[in-house]
């Protein structure tokens, strides 16, 4: 079903065929519909493929700079505490260039909700290594596969953030294999913010058929491999 809070005139959206973002945004859309928060919410979009969602929602949105969505949306929340503030970013934006801000926002327990899409690479620039790239995974910048001896192991964001936050935080990891799980985690994260608790964070494992150069079946096989490394579930709940 098309979420009510989508701008139908802007469909089809600009994401590639098979892009996991479609599922994640649809799940977010259902949560916004279900909680009836379309006119109270503000969505910040990081630079990366996520920016393509700028005119998808009939909800206020803003594109920020690469890695800077967390501090921008935290700033907004400080000015407008009654708003429901969402930040959407990729693994490059959140775990590389914007990690410092993400960690400190979590550490300060800023009452915002961050949705981070993990597809193991930089997709918008054509598929380079991200902190989340799996060991031996081939990308533009790891043509022989990621050498974890030299470039590290896949970055475990939610686990690290969980150690920084206080008891009020909600932190989870979901996978687009189960859109219902994605929806449930996003809903709990937003409710955590609405209850005036602390930082909430959902990492969503996603697929990138364009840069992985995979068909539907291969994409989901690779997603399975990701799920072995990135363990799904609620890592912290208040």
């Amino acid at each position: 079903m098309i979420p009510k809070c989508y701008k139908k005139e802007n469909l089809p959206h600009k994401f590639c065929p098979g892009c996991g973002y479609g599922v994640i945004l649809k799940s977010l859309g259902s949560v916004i519909d279900h909680l009836k928060i379309a006119n109270k919410s503000v969505i910040g979009l990081d630079i990366g493929c996520g920016l393509l969602a700028w005119n998808l929602f009939d909800v206020d949105t803003i594109q920020t700079h690469h890695g800077r969505t967390t501090p921008t949306m935290a700033g907004f929340k400080f000015a407008k505490p009654e708003a429901i503030v969402l930040a959407i970013m990729g693994d490059g934006g959140g775990y590389a260039i914007g990690l410092q801000s993400l960690l400190h926002s979590a550490h300060r327990n800023d009452p915002i909700t961050v949705i981070l899409v993990n597809n193991t690479l930089y997709a918008m620039t054509g598929g380079q290594m991200a902190p989340t790239t799996l060991a031996n995974e081939i990308t533009d910048t790891t043509p022989k596969g990621r050498d974890s001896e030299k470039t590290g192991l896949p970055f475990l964001g939610p686990e690290i953030i969980a150690t920084l936050t206080n008891k009020q935080a909600y932190i989870a990891r979901a996978s687009i294999r189960s859109p219902l799980q994605v929806e449930s985690c996003i809903e709990k994260a937003i409710k955590n913010q609405m209850r005036g608790k602390g930082f909430s964070f959902v990492e969503v494992l996603s697929i990138c058929p364009t840069n992985w150069k995979t068909n539907a079946e291969e994409s989901f096989k690779f997603l399975e491999k990701m799920e072995d490394v990135f363990v799904l579930g609620e890592i912290k709940k208040p």
């Binding site: 800077r68 700033g75 400080f78 801000s101």
Partner: peptide, 16 residues
């Protein structure tokens, strides 16, 4: 945590 974040925080508050 740094000046970048300070600047973007200002932007967020202005948007509000």
């Amino acid at each position: 945590e740094d000046e970048i974040s300070a600047g973007f925080g200002v932007i967020g508050a202005i948007l509000g």
